[in-house]
Nucleic acid binder design. Structure first.
Length: 389
DNA sequence: AAGTCGGGGAT
DNA sequence: ATCCCAGACTT
């Protein structure tokens, strides 16, 4: 346990104010201590920062606030344009929830972001952590927060050796985070707790010699900083194989390619992609069947071209033979993908016949950038454009 | 309580 | 390659 919490929060605050990073969603570095950032900036940044590192978020945050400078502009935006700005950031339900959240705040709160945790928690995409973050960081309310950084920092401070992913341990950490809160300066205190975890009290090789509160740290005293918290056991990831068809046609000297929209739920919901097939499921698109194909590698290699040919004909009528132009592997948290991409040229002049529930659309290569695409399809689109140039 | 949901940084 | 990241939501 931390002996004297009075000196703890003073040490942390002093360290934070001397060492904090200059981040675009924070109050400017020159401003008076205690200056609060704009609440809309906090809302957007907290949505983007969920399960995402600061360095990754910064450019997305800048572009997003340029496109949607106010909560009213975000509330009025269409979902596709919000998704397009989120493209590459992952966890796309965050983008749809953030837009819905802005709409709810405009409709119910007159566009003013609430400062009460219980009110904030009712909003889409705002859970226990984000509600506390907005209340404390944007309004200096006395609300606790426990994110991945705070979990690690408190576990080490208190010498908690049990697994912080377990429910009772999490609940205890929330209690401790609340007990540690100072009466004033909650915004800087909570920021400091996270900043410490992000820059000093890191998962691997923590910089304990730089830590302002190592005298308060039980793990440091025990020499067990590296063992706390315990690391998670890795789970094996399944490999999913996909055949991607770039079906091309030329209209008035403009090359167009066929894309399809993914279902409104599940992975990459509502985003667009080149026609994608599960080769173990020849007639279905990737939207429905995510199960691993039993097809082995060699038969897939030879079979992918056949699948491409058959399905291309089914969708677009007669086509040229498929040309393989790209292999791509893509790693997600719980699975891996292996994409084999082909081009075919549609010969018949008939409209595309969709093989999936969703919409299909012919778009010129130049217009592909208007559509939110999953990362692997962004890479395929880049290679395709380079080839056709 | 366990699964799902992306992609990249750091080591 | 592996673990983790200013988590929320569904089942």
């Amino acid at each position: 346990m931390i002996g004297r919490t009075q000196t703890f929060h003073k040490r942390l605050l002093q360290w934070y104010r001397a060492n904090r990073r200059d981040l675009p969603w924070r109050a400017p570095m020159g401003s008076q201590p205690g200056t609060l950032p704009d609440a809309y900036s906090v809302l957007v940044s907290e949505a983007m920062l969920q399960q995402t590192q600061v360095a990754t978020v910064i450019p997305y945050f800048q572009r997003f606030l340029q496109a949607f400078p106010t909560i009213h502009r975000l509330a009025a935006a269409d979902e596709q344009s919000v998704l397009r700005l989120w493209q590459g950031l992952g966890y796309y339900s965050r983008a749809r929830n953030l837009r819905a959240c802005a709409q709810a705040i405009v409709a119910q709160q007159g566009g003013k972001i609430p400062d009460a945790v219980e009110t904030l928690k009712q909003l889409p995409g705002i859970g226990r952590y984000t509600a506390g973050a907005i209340a404390s960081l944007a309004f200096n309310k006395r609300a606790a927060i426990v994110d991945g950084n705070v979990v690690r920092v408190i576990c080490r401070l208190d010498g908690i050796k049990s697994d912080p992913r377990q429910r009772p341990v999490i609940d205890h950490l929330w209690q401790r985070a609340a007990a540690l809160l100072p009466r004033d300066n909650v915004a800087d205190f909570n920021s400091g707790l996270m900043e410490l975890g992000a820059t000093v009290c890191t998962p691997l090789k923590p910089r304990c010699e730089q830590c302002p509160v190592r005298k308060n740290c039980a793990a440091f005293a025990l020499g067990k900083v590296d063992l706390i918290p315990p690391r998670k056991e890795a789970k094996p990831t399944k490999l999913n194989r996909r055949v991607v068809l770039c079906i091309l046609r030329t209209v008035r000297r403009t090359t167009e390619v066929l894309i399809e929209q993914r279902p409104a739920t599940g992975r990459w919901a509502g985003m667009w992609q080149f026609v994608t097939l599960d080769p173990g499921n020849h007639t279905k698109s990737a939207g429905s069947g995510e199960a691993d194909s039993a097809t082995d590698l060699s038969s897939l290699r030879s079979g992918a071209e056949g699948v491409a040919k058959n399905v291309a004909a089914k969708i677009a009528g007669s086509t040229t033979p498929p040309t393989h132009f790209m292999s791509l592997r893509h790693q997600l948290t719980h699975r891996r993908y292996a994409f084999e991409a082909f081009t075919v040229h549609a010969l018949a002049r008939r409209s595309a016949k969709s093989t999936i529930p969703g919409e299909m659309r012919w778009v010129s290569i130049d217009r592909l950038s208007d559509y939110p695409l999953p990362k692997p399809h962004v890479l395929i689109a880049a290679k395709l454009a380079a080839q056709l140039a």
